[in-house]
């Protein structure tokens, strides 16, 4: 535990000191949200009569988490390639605390940045109607999602041979919100895309957040979303174990 805490503190300290990564992770999702709300939002009919900002907030938060996790893949890869992992292993620090620390730091970073996105959203007119239960459930779902993609990012960071490649691998993670119900209703997309957009992991997550935050019935979307997060986490944890062993043979 001390080991994980020590290494998490290291990761957080270092990310606070790399302003470019911090600005990318914070500013880009906020900028994108503003662009969608002010530039595109006027032309988008979400079909439920509410303001576009209300529609777009869950997607913007997930987008933000995606950006934050991407930087985790790059930092993990850095540690694997520049000798840090050798030093840690010679100190008898194993792969589990090493990766758990990266994921912990990633989750904390992303909680802060998604909260910032939420604050900006509140400032530009987002008015959630959820009670404490709805807010708590939303936060829980978001935490589950952030945890799952942080583990996924750690796995990609172990898979990539260079930090640049690690950055490239996470492209998919950042792209995934677009073919979902994050920014426009799926019904407006070409029909061949419906199948993917409706069944990819982000759509039930976004629909759940939308429903929970606005106090509407969510159906079984939250359970589908949680199942996705659990599956992604389980697969990613297993992959990190395999990749770490392969990289440290």
């Amino acid at each position: 535990m001390t080991t994980t805490a020590t290494l998490s503190a290291r990761s957080l300290r270092m990310s606070l000191r790399s302003p470019d990564a911090l600005i990318t992770a914070l500013m880009l999702p906020i900028m994108l949200m503003l662009i969608f709300v002010y530039f595109f939002g006027g032309a988008i009919d979400t079909g439920d009569g509410s303001a576009y900002v209300t529609y777009v907030v869950p997607g913007a938060m997930l987008l933000c988490a995606g950006f934050g996790a991407a930087s985790t893949a790059v930092t993990v890869c850095h540690d694997m390639t520049d000798g840090v992992v050798d030093r840690l292993r010679s100190l008898d620090v194993g792969g589990v605390p090493f990766l758990a620390a990266h994921v912990t730091a990633s989750v904390l970073r992303n909680l802060v940045s998604t909260s910032l996105v939420l604050l900006v959203a509140l400032a530009i007119g987002f008015r959630p109607e959820a009670g404490p239960t709805g807010l708590l459930a939303s936060a829980g779902l978001l935490l589950a999602y952030i945890t799952s993609i942080s583990w996924l990012a750690a796995a990609l960071g172990l898979l990539a041979r260079t930090p640049e490649a690690a950055g490239g691998f996470t492209f998919l993670m950042m792209f995934l919100p677009y073919p979902s119900s994050a920014f426009v209703p799926i019904s407006t997309m070409p029909s061949w895309l419906h199948g993917f957009a409706e069944h990819q992991p982000l759509t039930p997550l976004i629909e759940s957040l939308r429903a929970l935050l606005m106090s509407r019935p969510a159906g079984d979307a939250p359970w589908t979303a949680l199942a996705w997060c659990a599956a992604i986490t389980a697969v990613s944890v297993a992959l990190t174990s395999v990749f770490f062993r392969r990289r440290t043979r």
Binding site: T6, L7, R10, R13, M14, G83, L91
Partner: peptide, 21 residues
């Protein structure tokens, strides 16, 4: 062969962290 030193930590932080580990 390559100094396993974090660019973004100070010398003191590096040594304290290693001590804790």
């Amino acid at each position: 062969q390559f100094a396993a030193v974090d660019d973004l930590q100070t010398g003191l932080e590096t040594l304290r962290m290693t001590g804790r580990l």
